[in-house]
Every structure is written in C-alpha cells, then in structure tokens.
C-alpha cells in the first residue's frame, strides 16, 4: 500500500498517495474556502508530509486523516479571514462569469464546476460538508462523521438532506432553464 511504503520513506509512494487523495481533498476545500483552496491544501499537505509518521491505518483511513487535517486548516483560514465559506464561493463565482474563457465549451465546463460549488455552498454548512466528504472526498459514513466530529447518524441525515436539496434545486432550475446557465441568471 502506498501510504505504508511512504511511511517507510518511499517518496514515490508518497507521490502516488498524494495524487490519489488530492483531487477529492481539493474539491472539498473549494467547497469550504472557495478559491483559497489551493493555498489551504498546500498548508494541509505540508502538515501531512510532516506528520506522516504519526498516522496509523490503511488507504481509506488515510483519506479520513488527510481530510481532517485539511478541514482544520480550512477552519483556521476561515477564522483568520472572518469570511463565511459561502461568501467566498460567491465572490469567486461572480469573478468567474463566462465570457473570459476562450471557447464556448470551456466556458460551460468551467461554469458547471462553479455552479456545482455554488449549489453546494447554498446548503447549510453541515449538509454541505457531509455531501462533500461523502461524495467528493469519497469517505464512508463513519469516516465522514469522524472528520466532522459528529455522530454517524447525524452525518448520514445531513448528507441525505443535502443531496435531496441539491436535486430539488436542480430540478426547479431545470424547468425554467432554457439557455446556457450563468450565475447572473440563476440568481
């Protein structure tokens, strides 16, 4: 297993673990802190690299452990910034309106990511985090609950409600949507 080999000092194995974990971790952080996600992820990975020897567990455990570290870094960041995560995502959305992208297709693809983040950021915080940890990071229920410091039942409910709410919003906007969706129109 990559993590175990990395703990024995294998740099290539650590690179493998990084590439497996980073996409979901960065997505989760984008949901939490918007466009500061890269910086926060960088901080988190420095801590992960330093504390790797402390970790005990398998690959799934490594996902949960790294998510916990990333979450703490994100919350530190938010405390420093005194900015609500949804506000930061919102500002980012406003800056990233299509039109600055080179092709129509790229604009749509970029928008879809931003739009997804915007929908998630409209959810209550506990639902948004539960959905992101379950769906984007790929944690199971107990692991997500441990990351959030909550009971598994509470996190399961939050994830369910979050997804249901997202589906409802999508269907509602789907009915009225008859053109390329932009943030300005969706508001």
């Amino acid at each position: 297993m990559a993590v175990a080999r990395a703990q024995e000092g294998d740099e290539a194995a650590f690179a493998v673990a990084y590439r497996i974990v980073q996409p979901g971790l960065l997505g989760y952080l984008r949901g939490l802190v918007g466009d500061e996600a890269e910086d926060v992820a960088s901080d988190a990975w420095l801590e992960i690299a330093r504390d790797l020897g402390r970790f005990r567990g398998d690959g799934a455990g490594f996902r949960g452990w790294t998510a916990t570290i990333a979450r703490h870094r994100a919350l530190d960041h938010l405390r420093r910034q005194k900015v609500r995560p949804r506000a930061s995502a919102l500002e980012q959305d406003m800056l990233d309106l299509p039109g600055t992208h080179s092709t129509h297709e790229q604009a749509l693809e970029a928008l879809s990511t931003e739009y997804a983040l915007e929908l998630v950021s409209r959810l209550p915080r506990d639902q948004a985090e539960a959905v992101l940890l379950r769906v984007v990071v790929g944690l199971d229920g107990p692991a997500a609950a441990r990351v959030l410091g909550k009971r598994p039942g509470a996190v399961r409910t939050a994830a369910y409600r979050g997804l249901k709410s997202l589906a409802r919003q999508l269907s509602a906007e789907g009915v009225t949507d008859d053109g390329p969706r932009t943030l300005g129109e969706s508001r």
Partner: peptide, 27 residues
C-alpha cells in the same frame, strides 16, 4: 447526482508545482 457532483467538484488536474512542494516537505 453524487456522480455528477463528484465529477464537477473534484480537481483532477495535478499542479506539478504544488506537488513538488509537498514532496520536498516529505523529504
């Protein structure tokens, strides 16, 4: 919805510079 969400939100492009910093910290 989960699959769509994951596809949209995950960041599958790896920034080599960021990875380089992380690996340096590891070393």
């Amino acid at each position: 919805l989960s699959a769509l969400l994951a596809a949209a939100v995950r960041v599958d492009t790896v920034d080599p510079e960021a990875e380089g910093r992380v690996l340096a910290a590891f070393r």
